[in-house]
């Protein structure tokens, strides 16, 4: 695996205004992502993980700190970093699944309409959404919606994909399916992923590296996930590793 750093964040600080005083949500966060790396940020609910992802994709402004893609500092949002939201209403409900994807393709720009149509069809097929192409978001199941959202994000041609607890509102079976689906996608497409979750098993199953975030919005610990792939959800290795993670988490107050 290549070791090239493609994305970095330096000393990100963000306060939320609370009366006269600001409450820190992100305290001096620095992180680096290597190309084709699958990194999970693990932390309790409400610790600022979502805020962090929005700042990293420039959808929210930090009070200080910088972010850089391929070593170049960036300030505005763009399809180079796509964010998958936890909310299921991220698809544009007035467009069919196909049009949602097609809209994102339009952004990358230079291909002909015919080519774009072909690409859209290919994406729909890859994501198992052939039947859903002409349906509207409200007619899709939760799992299909999140798959379509990922497909749309990939259509935009990002360098990195940020995922904000994308599977947390799905039922257990669907979630497991989508975890495997995402791993497969990551390998086939050589993606770089930053995945936020509060689910220890999910982090252990998916990631190369786990960064633990505490309730004060600090990154407190990094754990390399050396489990060999493919991983077995019910295997003893994974269980041992989640036990270690749980141990780590319990050291930190507020978890």
């Amino acid at each position: 695996m290549e070791e090239r750093i493609i994305f970095s964040a330096e000393r990100i600080v963000k306060y939320y205004q609370n009366g006269e005083t600001g409450v820190p949500v992100l305290s001096n966060i620095s992180l680096k992502l290597k190309e084709r790396e699958f990194v999970c940020i693990l932390g309790p609910s409400g610790c600022g993980k979502s805020t962090l992802l929005r700042v990293l994709s420039s959808l929210e402004k930090a009070d200080s700190g910088t972010i850089a893609l391929d070593g170049n500092e960036i300030t505005g949002p763009g399809p180079d970093r796509m964010l998958i939201f936890q909310e299921q209403d991220q698809l544009f409900h007035w467009l069919s699944t196909r049009s949602n994807i097609h809209l994102a393709l339009g952004k990358t720009g230079t291909q002909s309409e015919q080519e774009r149509e072909k690409q859209t069809t290919a994406l729909l097929r890859q994501f198992g959404l052939q039947e859903a192409g002409d349906k509207f978001p409200h007619q899709l199941s939760g799992g299909m919606k999140q798959r379509a959202a990922i497909a749309r994000s990939l259509a935009a041609g990002p360098r990195i994909l940020f995922l904000d607890e994308p599977f947390s509102s799905l039922d257990a079976m669907t979630r497991e399916h989508l975890q495997i689906f995402l791993l497969d996608l990551w390998k086939r497409r050589n993606l770089t992923l930053l995945f936020v979750t509060h689910d220890i098993t999910e982090a252990a199953l998916l990631s190369d590296r786990i960064i633990i975030m505490n309730a004060e919005g600090k990154l407190v610990k990094e754990v390399e996930n050396t489990l060999s792939r493919p991983r077995d959800r019910d295997g003893t290795d994974l269980h041992k590793f989640t036990a270690v993670l749980r141990q780590e988490l319990s050291h930190n107050p507020g978890l």
Binding site: S57, R81, L83
Partner: peptide, 12 residues
């Protein structure tokens, strides 16, 4: 929905 606005911005 703020999510949809963000999704739009995210798409550039």
């Amino acid at each position: 929905s703020p999510t949809q606005i963000m999704a739009g911005k995210n798409l550039g």
